Computed example of a mutant assay.
Amino acid sequence: MTDENPSRSVDVLVVGGGAAGLSAGLTLARARRDVLLVDAGAPRNAPAHGVHNFLTRDGTAPRELLRLGAEEVRRYGGEVLTGTATSAVRDERGFTVRTTLGEVRARRLVVTTGLVDELPDVPGLAEQWGRGVVHCPYCHGYEVADQPLGVLGLTAASGHQALLFTQWSRDVVYFTHTGGELDPGRREELLARGVRVVDDRVVEVLTSGDRLSGVRLAGGEVLERSVLVVGAPVRVSSPLLESLGLRTEPVVFGGAVLGEHYPSGPGGGTDVPGLHLAGNVTDPQAQVVTAAGAGLVAAAAVNLGLLAEDTAADVALHRARGAAGSAVA
């Protein structure tokens, strides 16, 4: 789309250019569908040094992975543009989507816009996000192995997170912070695994140079740590999905509400016909590789729906031609 051509029609519009969106775009382009992908250019994992647990791409910088993915989509004829989709309406022909690039008509819509981590308001914490402050043991555990770790209690699930990180370090301190009283069983498990439990609130994250060096507690004590683990609540907010009537639901793990997501079913299907979701917008626990897989599954479901629609139209045309031929005969 350009200023001279502010609108266009496609088979599928994919909104969100992370692993899920690019995977969906690649699958659809290879299926010879006319696909347009629009991405705002603000990936959740941008602060991280590398993507992990992605076969053949382990350690690749997040933006480099996205660049490579966009190249692959374009190789098969898909279009990838930088922009934002703001709202949409649906009719019997599909969707009319308003974007910052112009209006797009699409027979199907795939949304993969991800989520936002709501970091706790602790001075110095946000500046270390993705480096000295991490959240996922499978994403970052190997890289922080054998270092002095701190785990910040935010919800009832934070104790489970501390337990997980003992797989990578035997020097783990759990700060109850605002996470409430630890379940006695969980406290016993942590103590048995060598975790020191500190019943105090972290009021500042300290750095030395550009590296995290410790935390200051409300009681004034300073504890040296190299890494702070923060399982921040997650939030999704999509004016685009809201305009189509979708509403968020809570994400619950171990009885604790960890945030919200937009629910979806098999193939990322939703209550809105023709609208599919993939990645963190619907599955907050999806890592890069599983988000990519979900994008493929959603794309396959979309292509199947389009094929059924195209086949029904061809059958109707075939019958009409047959009826017309019989009438002439």
Rank of each mutant, 00 (worst) to 15 (best):
L119D: 10
S87E: 06
P184I: 07
G132M: 06
V257Q: 15
P239E: 05
G41K: 05
T27P: 02
A278N: 01
A329Y: 12
L240R: 02
G25Y: 01
R105I: 07
G231R: 12
E92Q: 09
D3W: 14
E64D: 10
G220V: 10
L37I: 13
A313H: 10
V15C: 04
S7R: 12
V251Q: 15
A46T: 05
L13C: 05
E188I: 03
E221H: 06
G325I: 09
S213G: 01
H140E: 08
V328G: 09
A327C: 09
D183L: 09
H49F: 03
E181P: 14
P43S: 07
A300R: 09
G25M: 03
S264E: 01
A298I: 02
A312D: 14
A324H: 12
E72L: 12
V10L: 00
G322A: 10
L191W: 10
V197L: 09
L206W: 02
V197A: 10
L154M: 11
L13A: 04
R105N: 12
D34S: 04
T113R: 01
A31E: 02
R67C: 09
L115P: 02
G180V: 12
G179Q: 12
R57C: 06
G50L: 00
V236P: 01
A106P: 01
R93D: 12
R186Q: 15
N303Y: 02
G185W: 02
D200M: 13
V14N: 02
V89P: 01
G185A: 09
T311L: 14
H318N: 14
C139H: 07
A256W: 08
Q167A: 15
G83H: 07
G59Y: 02
L109Q: 03
V173M: 08
R216M: 08
H49V: 05
D310W: 07
G16H: 03
Y142K: 09
V288S: 09
V222E: 04
G141V: 09
E92V: 09
H261V: 08
G179M: 11
S208C: 04
G214D: 00
R186G: 06
L307T: 15
G159K: 07
L22Q: 13
R30A: 07
Q128I: 08
